[in-house]
Each structure stands twice: as C-alpha cells, then as structure tokens.
Amino acid sequence: MRNLYVDYGTGDDAVTALRDVDLTLHRGEVLGLAGESGSGKSTLAYAVTRLLSPPGVITGGDVVYHQRDGDDLDILSLTPQQLRAFRWQELSIVFQGAMNSLNPVHTVHSQLTDVLQAHRPEMSKADRTARAEELLKLVGIATDRLGSFPHQLSGGMRQRVMIAMALALEPEIVIMDEPTTALDVVMQRQILRQLVRLREELGFSVIFITHDISLLVEFSDRIAIMYGGRIVEEAGAADIYRDSQHPYSDGLLHSFPALHGPRRELTGIPGSPPHLAAMPSGCAFHPRCPKAFDPCAAKVPVLAAPGGQGDRAVACWLHHTP
C-alpha cells in the first residue's frame, strides 16, 4: 500500500478516514494492525479488498499485489469480474463480528461448499464435501458438524468455521478484522494459536486487526500502530513491546497489565481519539500527548526510520528534526 487515502462522502462534506498510508505485507508473515476504535483499521482492510460501502471511496494511492509468478497486480484497477476471481482465491477476509456472519438458515456444509462451487466449478459434489470435511478438521472441528446450523454451534466453533471458509481456496493473504473480539480470553488464545499453526502449515500471510495490542505482541511478526487514519509507528513485535518509540504506542502498551514481572501502574491514554471531521493541526496525537512540544501542533511528522534504524519507522518529532 502506497499513499493510500480514503474519504467518506464527497465534496466539502467529505471526511478523510485514511491519510497517506504506506504499509507492506511480506510473504508468510503476520502483520498486526493496532489502534483505538475509529483509527482507520477496518477502513484500511475494506479499502485493500475493495469492499468499502458507500459513501466510502478511495481517493488516492496504490495497492499492489506481488504474485508468485513475479507479475504485479494493481488491485484498485481490477474489473468486477477480475475482483471476484481475486477475492478468496488470492485474498480472503474474516470480518469483524465474524461469528455472526454465517447465514442462519444454511448448514455449515452448504456455506463451505458454496465457496468451492463458485470458484472451483470443476469440482464434483463429493470432492466439495471432502474438502469441507478437510477444512473443519484443519480448524479442530469434528466433521459430523457439517450438517449443523450456525445456532447449533458455540461462538468459538462459529469463529473457526469462518476461518475455515477463509482458507477454503488456500489464499496467499488472510485479513482478520478483530475476529476474536466477542470471545472470552481462553477461546481467543486457542483460536490464535490455531491460526499461527495454520499459517506455519499453509504458508499464507496474515493482516491481524485489533485494538488489543497485547494479542499482537504475542502472535505477530511485525506491528503497525494507527492513529487518526495514519500509521504512526511500525516495527517488529518484540521491538514495539520492549522499546516503543511513539508516545501513543507506549500509551497502548501501558493500558493492559503484564502477566509476568513486577507490578506496574496502568496509565492509559487521557482524552479521546480525534473526530475525523475536525482533525487537530500538526500531529493528530499532540492534544493527548504527554511529550508534545512546539513543532507537534504545527507540522505533521513524517513516517520514517528514527536514527537510521532501517527496520522500523515512527512518525514523531521526538525522533526527527522538525
């Protein structure tokens, strides 16, 4: 993703939800995307997959998919027919509130095989059923549940059926938009461990979106932090946890208790996220930032490597010359 912009609405009433977003997903990695509600995480997922509902519109930038054969595919220029073939085949998504995304009047078998019938019409009915059974086994569900309706499954099982559906065509990229929000902590960990195992087994890449940075620290290779529609920090998960460079990242990390080591006071972040229709001048975080100084209110910081550290990037005047 390069210089990606997304607006809601048009003309003078347009609200910019994504601003100049630069982000790269590497093959086979788990990229975590964290931030408070309203920071632009889901908008980014829907922009990349071309699933933005009106009045959302992509107003600038590029989204390029590098195929295994070496060719580059511009996702934003695909026709509806090309986009239909691309989705689920190369890129799939597990939606926010995914355990309620299953059709309540169709069985698990019907919904899993529907994906296969649409994208693999050459498959026989028996082959589609065999693949559906294989998918359920993959996510740890007994195959006798194929005939069940969604209301006959627990929340965690419905969640895993959605993950199985996303993996049906063995895509290269899976975007997971807060898929475990409605589940208890134990079930969250079970599903995420299963996801990591599947990633190692099948080799796909994951964009994992959540407001819970503690989950990302544990399961991601890299983490990107969003605030006010921008990426404000990007680094390896261990680097973010041990040495976050942006005050907002530090605030998120101190908003949950540590399970090990000495007790620490939970500080949180004062104030509320900015209203996208009335963004602050300069750095969007400066009204809430405990380390803000003169340039913060006047100039928007550039996302760049601090002090020549090429493996991370931060948008903060504490690490760059104003």
Results as ranks from 00 to 15, higher is better:
Q81H: 11
K137T: 11
D62V: 02
L146M: 13
R84A: 13
G61E: 12
V105P: 05
D177P: 13
C296W: 05
L146W: 05
Q111T: 12
D294C: 00
P301G: 09
H106T: 04
E200V: 01
M165I: 09
K291H: 08
A142L: 10
N100W: 08
D12E: 06
G271H: 02
G38H: 01
S124K: 04
T180E: 04
D74I: 06
L4N: 14
L153Y: 11
D311F: 03
L146K: 12
G228Y: 00
A45F: 07
P306M: 14
C296I: 05
E178R: 02
G56Q: 07
R158M: 14
Q117D: 13
A164S: 12
Q309M: 06
R120P: 01
D72H: 14
F285G: 01
R263I: 06
L169T: 15
L215F: 03
A304I: 13
H286G: 02
G9N: 12
D127P: 02
M279H: 00
T181Y: 09
F256M: 09
G38K: 00
D13L: 12
R19F: 00
P247N: 10
C283H: 00
N103H: 13
A182K: 08
E170D: 04
I163R: 07
D22K: 03
C289I: 09
L253S: 02
D250I: 01
L318M: 11
K291R: 06
V185F: 08
D71H: 14
Q111N: 12
D72T: 04
L266Q: 15
V64T: 15
L76V: 14
S255C: 05
R19C: 02
R158G: 05
H319M: 04
H151L: 15
I173G: 05
P55A: 14
L112C: 07
P306G: 13
L23R: 07
Y241I: 01
